[in-house]
Amino acid sequence: MTPATWPCPLPAGGAAREYALVFDRGRQHRLLIVPALFDESNRLRRFTVEVMRRLDGAGIDCFLADLPGCNESLQPLERQDTTDWTDAATAAACHFKATYALGIRGGCLFTPTGLPVWHYAPVKAASILRQMLRARILAAREAGREETRELLAETAVVSGIELSGYRLGADFFRHFEKMAPASRAATIAQEAVGGSGLWMRAEPGEDSAQADALAAILIAGIAP
């Protein structure tokens, strides 16, 4: 497992280096992974890397790329739009010469086209936002402030909003809230992996049986 960088297109032209965690031995089968988003990305990162270790062991190269504005990225999150993330995932797939792609949870909204794609426990953007808005309302209430979902959403589409520490721009919010995972992907439901999804854990966790199961599904699809 090594850190790598790749050229990610900037909206105004040019490119910035973004980070990726890679297992790259120049092998034939190459899987790009679009990580889960926001809070869920932290909770699922270790699980994701555990799946990558198993893929590596089975002879599959894999690449976990940061979306601009996320994880180690130096780009401001609030300046990202949804098209920037789609472009980023496409550029990462091209740079790493991916032959397959896997989206995890919210990452399924940004998996590149033109490759065989799996979606693990895909989620609609509206569901992600609903939970983040609820967390903000709960935190405000605890601090003695009343906020309503309607008012927050109205503000968000005009001037952007900070949810769970993530500063989302107005354009992003408007475009993101309508997004749903594309149906062309092969969906891997949590039931196929067993146990309960680690994204719902209050603290980041890991589960080797689930990592084994998800890796096995991918390996069977890539290198039967």
Partner: peptide
Amino acid sequence: ELDSMAVAGLLT
């Protein structure tokens, strides 16, 4: 560990 984000997840 049951902070506002976790409670929001729990309610979902």
